[in-house]
Structure formats: C-alpha cells, structure tokens
Design a protein around this nucleic acid. Sequence first.
DNA 1: AAATTAACCTAACAAGTGTTAGGTAGGTAG
DNA 2: CTACCTACCTAACACTTGTTAGGTTAATTT
Lengths: 207, 207
Amino acid sequence: MSVTKTNAEKPEVGRAGILNAAASLFCQHGYGGVSLRAIAEAAGIKAGSIYYHFASKDAIVTEILDAGILSVHDEARAAVEALPNDTTPDAIFRAAVRGHLHALLEHGDYTSANVRIFGQVPPAVRDANLPVRKAYEKYLDDLLSDLQATGAIREGVSLSRLRLLLIGALNATLEWFDPEQGGAEALADDYADTFLNGILNKTGDNT
Amino acid sequence: MSVTKTNAEKPEVGRAGILNAAASLFCQHGYGGVSLRAIAEAAGIKAGSIYYHFASKDAIVTEILDAGILSVHDEARAAVEALPNDTTPDAIFRAAVRGHLHALLEHGDYTSANVRIFGQVPPAVRDANLPVRKAYEKYLDDLLSDLQATGAIREGVSLSRLRLLLIGALNATLEWFDPEQGGAEALADDYADTFLNGILNKTGDNT
DNA sequence: AAATTAACCTAACAAGTGTTAGGTAGGTAG
DNA sequence: CTACCTACCTAACACTTGTTAGGTTAATTT
C-alpha cells in the first residue's frame, strides 16, 4: 500500500492525494481542527471536489484509521517472518518492535493519525476501526504467548499488560522522535533491550 | 490544586467549573472538536459568559495544559519525597512511577488533556506550556541521573531515551486504563517492575 | 463526430464558531 | 439608600464548516 508513504515533494493527485493530505493534517491539528477546505488545499483541489471521491469527511477518516493499523501490522509481521527458523525468542521480540517502529516513524502519517485522533473521532468512526485494531492486538498477543511458551518470559509478567505497555510506549515515540538522533532502527534496538533486560544493574560491577 | 479533580456529581461553578468542563471535553474530542458553547453548557452557563473569566478559548487551553503537567509533577515528587531516607534506588523509581500514574489516572482530566491535545494546539499555546513541561522533564532526568550515580542502572541504558520511554509509556495508559482491573497503584507496581527487571527470564527455571 | 466518463469547479446553503458590547440582577460595602 | 462589584445573559457579528446540486472540461469510447 504505497499510500502510507507521504511524498512531500509532489502531492499525489486524486483520491490518494486527499488521503495523504488528510492524514498529515490530522496528525498536526487533530480531528476537529482539520477542515475539508484545508485538506482540499493541501491536495491541490477545492473542497467540493472531495465529494467525488469520498462520501463525507468521516469516510476519509475511517479509511485513514484503518490504513494506519494495517501498515504497522504488516511491517511487524513481515519483520518477524523474515527471521530464520531457529531464531531466539528475544530476536523475535526485537523484530516485532522494529517492524512497528519502522511503520510508525518512517511511513507514519497514517499510523500517527490513528494514534493521535482515534480517541477524538465520533463513536461510529471509532467502532469501524475496531476490527483491524483487534486483529493487530491479537497478533501481538499470540506472539507474546508463543514467547512465553518457550519459557523466555519470566514469571510474574502479565502478557495482557505487557502488550498494552509495549504498544503504548512504541506509539508514544511519535511525540518526540527525531531522525537526527539515530533512525527508527537504533531506537527499536534500544527499546527492545530495555523491555527485555530492564534497567536495573544486576551485576553490581559498574559502579 | 483542587481543580485537578473532576467532580462528576456537582459541576463546579464559575472559573473552576469552566476549566473542569473544558478539560474533560478536550480529552474526549480534542482541541478543535470542542466549542465554547459546549464548554459553557457543560459548565452550566452560556458561551458569552466565559469571557468574564477568560480572555479567549486559548487562555482556557493554556491554563489546562499547565495544570496538567504541574499535577503530575507534584504527585511524582511527593511520592518520592515521602520515602524514608535510606530507600533503595528501585523503590525511588517505583515511587516516581506511582506518583505519575496516580496523577494521570485518578485525577487526570487536566493531565489527560495535556497528553492528548498538546500536539494539536496552536504553536503559541504549545510554546507557553514548555516551561512547566521542561521542569518536569528535568525533575525526572535528575532522578534517573541520581539512580545511575548509585550504580543502580546498568551500563548501556541511555537516560535520555529512558525518560522519554517512561513518560511515553505511562501517558499511554490513558487510552486503555480500566479501574475495574485493578487501580493505578497495582498498575504502577507492574509497570515499574517491567521497567526495572525486564521481561526476559534469566534463570531458566520456570519452563 | 457524438456520447460517455472521470475529475474536477462553483456558488450556495444551513449550521456552527469565537468573540464583542450592552444589559441584568443579586449581593455587599459604605 | 446608593454605589459598586461579581457573575452572569443576550443578541449580534463576521467568519468558518460540511455538504449539495449544477456546471465544465479533457480524455476516452462508441
């Protein structure tokens, strides 16, 4: 799905251009802060023309929300599936984190928009996004469950909370990620390491 | 600051009532999705009356954003200061997490509003919030720095990234926290434990 | 060449928005 | 009792918003 990559140099025309423009604007100004006139202008057309492609503002939003989740799900799954068969549990965890962050930070207007405006949209729009949302959650739940079954996850870690913590932490990178300070890749490694090993010094030998 | 506690039973009148109503509505609908008429109605007055108390919509927002950060800062600091003098590094970390989550989840319309709309508000409003924001960040940076100086934090953990990860993860609880499944306290303990010890099973004896 | 289609434009509509200026009424101070 | 203050109300304003219906034009199909 090439629409998930925002091309800043030459605005896409037509339907894709409208979605791209809208996703970007929703990230910046929230759901209610973006008018159809603003979207149209960013897409290089006039507001009334949007109705040739979409039935309503909410039809645009609905599509963006879905694309945002599908994108991150696809990349996390692809990263994990690209691993060799005899991969270690922690490498699997790292891959999922890497995939998620890559989608979010490098191709992220759609996913960013989802993260930022999901809680603001009208209930019907929110409900419409639930199926793809739950599918991704299930994917991660299953992945963590598999890791646990290998004995890789220590006792006392609640998987449901872990998944919520993980997604929440990863999505929060949106607010401050700066590519100048290392790319999504380096950040993913760092994050995964923190989640896997914690921050406590257990060896007592670096004081 | 009693205004940070939303009282659902009897709306506060006057200035505090406006702030409370606005904070709650911004959480639900974002910055642009909340009109002065909606705020006024929730506060039990008419929209024009808001101008007796506030110069503009943005004056309301500015005040809510600041209160949101101050609240969480105060509670984190209070939780840490309440500890005995010979407290362990991990207990200090736990206290900070507990304070933050308590402010966020139990008294949280103001902080929630900050988390949710900071990225959407006009640049001038955002800039106005930066001083109190940076003060809290510095507080956490210093706390983590002190922990590191005791040797409690393992080598390889980047403090700046850790602080960002921590705040991000904690604030993300807003999207899914459900008091029916244990209070903020239990969640704080769980989260702190995950951050401190990681999720990897290092002992290999629970397979 | 005429008809059709895709992708826009335009003007207008009804409703909504932040704000202003003038007014009201109850309570308090002198 | 009068004057002042607080905390609202109201009507109006200029502008904005999502949407609609009718129109245009270039490209393609018949």
